[in-house]
Computed example of a mutant assay.
Amino acid sequence: MPDQLLPFLVLAVLITVAPGPDITLGLRNSLRGGATAMWWTGLGCCSGLGVHATASVIGLSTVLATSATAYATLRTAGAGYLLWLGFQSLLGAVRANRTLATPSDSGVTAAPDTLGRSAAYRQGLLSNLLNPKIAVLFLTLLPQFVGPNEPHARTSLQLALAFIAVGLLWWRLTSWLFGGIQGVLRRRWFRTALESTTGLVLIALGLRVAFTIWRDGIP
Rank of each mutant, 00 (worst) to 15 (best):
Q4R: 12
A110F: 09
W39V: 00
V51W: 13
T174G: 03
T16C: 11
L6R: 04
T155N: 07
Q182H: 08
T212A: 08
S175D: 10
A111Q: 13
L126E: 00
W39P: 03
T140W: 02
A37Y: 03
A204Q: 00
S118G: 09
T66W: 04
A162N: 01
L205R: 01
L169P: 12
T36I: 14
T197D: 05
L202G: 01
V184Y: 07
R117P: 05
G33H: 00
G107M: 14
R215K: 13
W40T: 03
G33Y: 02
P2Q: 10
P2C: 12
L14V: 14
T114N: 07
G116N: 02
G20Y: 12
L14P: 07
I58P: 14
P143I: 12
I15Q: 00
T54V: 15
N128E: 01
A65C: 09
T114P: 06
T197W: 04
L74N: 01
R95M: 12
G78V: 11
N97H: 15
L205H: 04
F145E: 03
F190D: 01
L139I: 02
R172W: 15
R215C: 03
W176Y: 06
N97D: 14
G80L: 10
T102F: 04
T212N: 12
L130E: 03
L129A: 05
L139C: 00
D22G: 15
L177H: 03
P143Q: 10
T24G: 04
L168I: 14
G199Q: 00
V51H: 07
L194H: 02
I164P: 07
R32D: 11
T197G: 09
L129R: 03
G48I: 12
R122P: 02
S47R: 05
R98D: 12
A120W: 00
L11C: 05
G20H: 11
L159A: 08
W176S: 04
T192S: 09
N149S: 14
Q158C: 06
T102E: 15
P132K: 05
L74A: 05
A120Q: 07
G59Q: 11
A162I: 08
V94E: 13
A111K: 06
L137C: 06
F190S: 04
V184E: 08
L49E: 08
V166L: 10
T212L: 12
A12V: 10
T16A: 11
A70N: 01
L11D: 02
T69R: 06
S104F: 11
A165N: 02
T66M: 08
P219N: 11
N149E: 09
L129K: 01
T24W: 06
V13R: 01
C46L: 11
F8M: 06
A53L: 15
L126P: 03
G199E: 03
Y71E: 09
G116H: 10
T109A: 15
P132E: 04
V108D: 15
L91C: 06
R188W: 05
H52S: 13
L129H: 04
P143R: 10
R117F: 09
S175G: 10
L161W: 09
H52Q: 14
V201A: 10
R188L: 14
